[in-house]
């Protein structure tokens, strides 16, 4: 039950994009087509889950025993960057179409603040290893949910007569704001 609430809270109540406003870059940049969004979401779930597990170990086994907590940010970024490189090589070999569809955004996961954000939130909240991994996977699933919803709506907006000044990124930002408004429905549901 504790884990169920944790997962619901991470996906809906504290949605990483729509309630905490992390990871907006790929959220806006990678939401043109639903297929790409699903691929990007999958890549983010994979990277985030792995990165959180490894950064948890780095923090507890390496940084804290040596009294190097002040290196947290830089160490985490290093781990995440290395992981993303690994995922990139993996996708290039195994799923070339997805690799091409993701394009520049795969390397951008490196600087996706959602990845670093989730890893650091786990440390701030003093979660254990298992709880951190579950929280990370659920948060990334929340990211994927927001991304896929956004992509589906934007695909539909391609046929709307959006004023020229608002086409593309501006209407995407407006839409992101409206989606965030709708997600306020979940606020306060789970403390």
């Amino acid at each position: 039950m504790e884990y169920f609430l944790l997962i619901i809270a991470a996906i809906f109540v504290n949605n990483i994009v729509l309630a905490q406003y992390l990871g907006n870059c790929p959220f806006l940049g990678c939401s043109r087509a639903t297929g790409t969004a699903v691929g990007m979401g999958g890549a983010v779930i994979f990277v985030v889950t792995l990165a959180t597990a490894i950064t948890w170990l780095v923090q507890k086994r390496l940084l804290e025993p040596m009294g190097l907590e002040y290196l947290q940010t830089i160490a985490f970024i290093l781990v995440i960057a290395a992981l993303v490189q690994f995922v990139e090589m993996f996708l290039k070999k195994v799923l070339p179409p997805l690799y091409r569809a993701l394009g520049i955004f795969l390397p951008l996961i490196t600087t996706n603040c959602a990845v670093l954000g989730i890893a650091i939130i786990c440390q701030r909240k003093e979660y254990g290893l298992l709880k951190s991994v579950v929280f990370a996977a659920a948060s990334a699933a929340g990211f994927m949910l927001a991304l896929v919803l956004m992509a589906a709506i934007r695909e539909r907006l391609d046929t709307a007569r959006v004023p020229r000044a608002l086409r593309g990124m501006p209407i995407g930002l407006i839409l992101a704001g409206l989606m965030s408004l709708a997600f306020f429905a979940f606020s306060g549901m789970i403390a």
Binding site: I153, R156, L157, A160, R161, V162, P163, L166, I171, I174, L175, L178, A182
Partner: peptide, 11 residues
């Protein structure tokens, strides 16, 4: 109106 008027709005 930002979605182009009648029929464009997703909400």
């Amino acid at each position: 109106m930002v979605f182009g008027g009648l029929g464009g709005s997703p909400l």
